[in-house]
């Protein structure tokens, strides 16, 4: 049983690390802001789920498990909210997706 749990937690850790990395590559390589956000936001939920889940399995039932799960809970609540808020702000400001090149009308820097 312990070996199964161990193997499962290692698999989750490595899988989570893989997703985190994929998200990073996507955020760097995707052509425009909304696709970049798409890449990073989805993996920002799945990556922590797997990585922190793996850590929770490693720590057994203890205070650490509770803390790891609390971290996971807060990340899962705040991450999508931050993504939503950012995407909303960008679309209200008139940023358009789907173009490879930025047009002159796109707000490059804040128009404050």
């Amino acid at each position: 049983m312990a070996i199964v749990l161990d193997a499962l937690s290692w698999a989750m850790l490595v899988g989570g690390a893989l997703f985190v990395l994929i998200g990073g590559i996507g955020a760097l390589r995707m052509p425009d802001f909304f696709t970049r956000m798409h890449a990073s936001s989805l993996t920002d939920s799945l990556g922590p789920m797997l990585v922190l889940g793996g850590l929770a399995l490693q720590s057994g039932w203890s205070l650490e498990t509770v803390k790891v799960l609390a971290i996971l809970l807060f990340l899962l609540i705040t991450g999508p909210t931050a993504t939503y808020a950012l995407g909303h702000a960008a679309s209200v400001a008139g940023l358009k997706g789907g173009t490879r090149e930025y047009r002159a009308s796109d707000p490059r820097e804040p128009r404050a």
Binding site: I77, T81, Y84, H88
Partner: peptide
């Protein structure tokens, strides 16, 4: 006016 951040922030 932003419902989702408002609710989540208040919970937090």
């Amino acid at each position: 006016s932003h419902l989702i951040p408002h609710v989540v922030g208040r919970v937090l």
